[in-house]
């Protein structure tokens, strides 16, 4: 299951709507092993395409260096589909290289740049196997365990 806070969820949806009809993409980083999507990083779609996305290679390196410095990993990798359902395509499955990530797909096919509901779905993609999972949107993520245990 993916648990994500409302503000991050809203920001991903807003990004997808803003970039429609091109695909939007980005990540939500969190502490390694925590499964907590804490830090949204919107990425530029270097492909600038309605049917493809790719992080720019220079941006990609900077992103991973930043995460490394913070002991983070990509907890969520998201992108939008702008004319099809929010389900991983064969391309998405073949190129999914983060076994620990939740792959979030947003479809803007119904309302495009305008207000209105979107499909927001999450998957695990490991070795070509796709498993859909529930998405729980919370007002805020619970405090980290280490913070809770502090006397």
């Amino acid at each position: 299951m993916l648990t994500i806070d409302q503000a991050t969820y809203d920001a991903i949806v807003a990004h997808a709507k803003r970039d429609h009809p091109d695909e939007a993409c980005g990540i939500v980083a969190g502490p390694e092993g925590s499964d907590r999507p804490e830090r949204l990083v919107e990425m530029v779609n270097a492909a600038g395409s309605p049917t493809f996305y790719e992080f720019d290679s220079t941006d990609l390196l900077q992103l991973y260096k930043d995460m490394d410095a913070r002991d983070e990993e990509p907890v969520v990798v998201y992108h939008s589909h702008t004319a099809t359902e929010a389900y991983p395509s064969r391309t998405d499955i073949g190129l999914a290289m983060e076994p620990n990530a939740h792959y979030v797909l947003v479809s803007t096919r119904t309302h495009g740049n305008n207000d209105g509901p979107v499909e927001f779905r999450s998957y695990r993609i490991i070795d070509g196997a796709v498993t859909e999972e529930d998405v729980t949107v919370v007002a805020q993520l619970l405090p980290r365990e280490s913070e809770e245990s502090t006397p």
Binding site: Y64, L95, A96
Partner: peptide, 12 residues
């Protein structure tokens, strides 16, 4: 040397 898989995909 840094090796990073592309983060890429798309509807097709």
């Amino acid at each position: 040397v840094v090796v990073l898989p592309a983060v890429a995909g798309g509807a097709r």
